[in-house]
Design a protein around this nucleic acid. Structure first.
Lengths: 156, 156
DNA sequence: CCTAACTGTTAGGCTACCTAACTATGAATG
DNA sequence: CATTCATAGTTAGGTAGCCTAACAGTTAGG
C-alpha cells in the first residue's frame, strides 16, 4: 500500500518533522498523565465507557470492542478492565443476548473519576497553551482536524 | 504557575481537543515503532548520540544529560544505554575531565542502525501523509513549529 | 449433532519506567 | 588537608502496560 516508491522529498521532510514532534510530545503526555490518579490507559478506557452510555440504555461496551478502540489486543483490555473493576470504577455484567460476551459499564465513582481527571488534565494543558500567541493557537487548532484524519486512517 | 484561575473556555476546548489528538496519536507512534528493529526509546537515545557527534570531537553525551533529554530518570537512561551497548550500537567511555562521569557515543553499527530505522519510519509516515490533501499537509506543517514550542516550554 | 468460529480469561514474558540504596569521585571549608 | 557535602552513575526491586499462546465456554452452520 505504501512502500518502495521513491517518495516526494518534501513529503519525507514533513514526515520526519511530524515524527519528531510526536516523539517529543510523548513527554508532554507523560507530564499530563503523571499528574493524575488515573493512568492514561485507564482514563482512555473509562472515557470510552462514558461515551457508550449507561447499562440501563442497553449500553456498556464489549471487551473486544474496547480493545479495538484502544488499539490493543483483547487480553490487554481484559487486564485494564480488571483493574478498573477492582478500583470500583467499572463493572462487568453478562451480555443478555450473547452469554460469551461481557458488557462493561461505568459505575458512579467511575463517572466522577473521569470527569475530575479530565478537568485536571485540561487545566494543565490550558495553562501550557496560554503562553502561546493567538496566531500559534490558531495554527494548532487548524491542524487538529488533520491529525484526526490521520489517526482515523490508521484505524481502518 | 498555572492553576486555579477560571481559564478561558475556548482555551479549555483547544486543550481538550489537543489532548485528544495526542492520545490517538499514540497508536500512530506505536504503529511506526512496531515496524522497526529498534524500540522508540532506543532510537531516541541513539539519535541524541548522533547529534552529539563522535568521541574524537570531544563528543559523547553524559548519562545524566541523556536522561534529561529523554525526559526520564537517570537509572532509566542507564538501562537503555546498557542495552544499546550490549547490542553493539553504543559505547561507554570514562570522561577524561571527571572520572565520576561516563561519556556515551555511537558505534559505527549504531550510526547505520539509526539511519536505516529513521528512513524506514519516515517512509511509512510519508505513506500515511500522502493520502492527505495539499491543504491538510500545509495546515499540519504550520502547526509543527507550534508543537515544537510547546514541547520546548516543557523542558524548561 | 458436531465441528468451526468467536468471546473472554489465564499464564508467562517483555520493555520501559520508577524509587531507594549504594559506590565513587569531586568540591568546599574550617 | 581532613572532613563533609554534593554530584554521577549503577544496582536492586517493583509497577504498568503490552504481547503471544493456550484454554474454556457459547454460538452457529453444515
Amino acid at each position: 500500500m505504501n512502500a518502495i516508491e521513491p517518495a516526494d522529498p518534501r513529503l519525507l521532510v514533513l514526515a520526519q518533522d511530524f515524527r519528531e514532534a510526536l516523539r517529543h510530545s510523548i513527554y508532554l503526555v507523560r507530564r499530563l498523565d503523571a499528574d493524575g490518579e488515573l493512568s492514561a490507559a485507564q482514563l482512555s478506557t473509562l472515557k470510552m465507557l462514558m461515551d457508550a452510555g449507561p447499562a440501563s440504555d442497553g449500553g456498556g461496551v464489549r471487551v473486544g470492542e474496547i480493545a479495538r478502540n484502544l488499539g490493543v489486543k483483547v487480553p490487554s483490555a481484559t487486564e485494564q478492565i480488571i483493574k478498573l473493576e477492582r478500583a470500583g470504577l467499572a463493572r462487568r455484567e453478562p451480555d443478555p443476548s450473547d452469554s460469551r460476551a461481557v458488557r462493561v459499564t461505568l459505575t458512579g465513582a467511575g463517572r466522577t473519576a473521569v470527569e475530575s481527571a479530565n478537568e485536571r488534565r485540561n487545566a494543565v494543558m490550558a495553562g501550557i497553551l496560554s503562553s502561546l500567541s493567538d496566531e500559534d493557537r490558531a495554527a494548532l487548532a487548524a491542524a487538529l482536524p488533520v491529525i484526526g484524519k490521520i489517526n482515523a486512517t490508521l484505524q481502518a
